[in-house]
Design a protein around this nucleic acid. Sequence first.
DNA 1: GCCGTTTTCGGCCCGACTGTTTTCAGTCG
Length: 581
Amino acid sequence: MNPNTLDKAAVAKILRELSLLLQLKGENAFKVRAYDTAADRILGMTQDLGALVREGRLQELPGIGQGLAEKISELVSTGKLGFHEELKAEFPPGLLEMLQLPDMGPKKAMALWRELQVGSVADLERACREGRVRALKGFGAKSEAKILEGIALHQRAQGKRKLLGDVLPTVEGLLELLRAAPGVVRVSPAGSVRRRAETVGDVDLLASAPQAGPVLDVLANAPGVAVLIGKGESKCSVRMTEADLQVDLRVLPDEDFATALHHFTGSKAHHVRLRGMGQDKGLKISEWGVHQEDGTKLPIRDEADIYRLLGMQYVPPELREDSGEIEAALEGRLPEDLVSLEDVLGVVHCHSTWSDGKNSLEEMARAAQALGLKYLTVTEHSQAAVYAGGLKEDDLKRQWDEIDRVNAAVPGLRLLKGIEVDILESGALDYRDSVLERCELVIGSVHIRHSMNEEQMTQRLLNAMDNPHLNIIGHPTGRLIHEREPYPVRMEAVLDKAAARGVVMEVNGKPARLDLKAEHVRQAVQRGVKLVVSADAHRREDLNHLVFAVATARRGWARKGEVLNTLPADRFISTLKGLRC
DNA sequence: GCCGTTTTCGGCCCGACTGTTTTCAGTCG
């Protein structure tokens, strides 16, 4: 294989960069969009990119014409693109990073560069602090303050922690390689990845094998490793190209695997409490094993042995945060039937090309079927979400004909007729009741007017729940991790009303959302509010977001019975409707 | 840039919000 060959992700990344560079240059907005669309198309294609290039068939992809086909071919076959190199050279490299700041688009960035020679985030911060930005036409003191706020948020996001969803695919690829490594008995992630925390710093991996050396070599030579940071007799650290991620691997004898796994899984707070409880029983619990006071090492086959020795229930990794799970496990009241991915029969909250999704209804249906799911709720945006191609009431009727057709064509997978209707500023829904009542399910979400105060936003959600056709509140706090704070809302009041009126809360699994978050899930569960785990899917691949929704539900102690899309389709719908009062 | 049983040229997604203005430009969703 040509070592220069770029994969789909790398090609899409360069196309996106080209789109940004063209914007800086002030190019036609439709040309700019063509590059973005092409990036989407490449990411979403099912065919082999290399083969399409070799056979000269790129133009068969919609949105890719002669110009883009030539550029993509050059990229794939030579590893770079002259047009890209030339365009990049026209601007300071830091300008692209500036565009990631909130409210910073190409026009403002270029004005800052042209007038003040501000060409990086660092330059910009200095210029704001020195009060030079406010002097610029179109900017003022308020813009300066907002830019500084944006830079602070950006820098926090640039910090070490990454979204679990951005990290997990890389981790799973490495685990697969390690499972096949010479002599390996057991392999597991540890740390925050295993606890399924929202964000991850470094990744810890653990393996057991009689000989560590050959296993460490597998990681050191794995594809995607950018730098070998260090390698000793039992440990190896690397930095991956993807997500700039540091991965540490420890390899040890199988008899030490369980105690090491427990130690490195943490959380620290959970572990510290267990060690203290061990001491009271004359047991020394450490990374190296469980020892009695006379120094005898007890055999520990798996983590369950440790909890058994301490006289408590097994605590799943997602719950190990010292937030009440230890007391519950001692009293035997830890839920044993936490929802799992296998329990989920249908995927909730999906979009298609009818609104802002990237795949057709049939493609979404077949992808869900391939995952072993039984149903998928089609919930496009409603008319108020103009930017997302929201559906008019009339479009909905036409879409339902299409759904009937796909349902007949894809056996064993049922598309449900729903809507993600906008919750307007007043709390009214964006469709008439006569339309909503004919939907099989109605998700209500806030997409516009986020900047209301806490009282107004709370009232908005409470009012929405007065509509008897609303079944589910979608992404109830609107947060985007590292990008946007949640809107202010009195969650207790919302959950109390949801419990009283039989409204279900979404646990949105999109990695940057995870909304409700685990703490709120727990509050919901305590009040008897039912949940759905959702994908918020805008393309086939997003159906995997269910993994993160389930993880978040588990971290919030949700049982299978509390998650409604563990029910078969008919009972799912009848339960949703039956709950409303 | 792409695309075409209206078109090989002229469309292609637009309304709301914010901060800057004094009638609007830029950004976002």
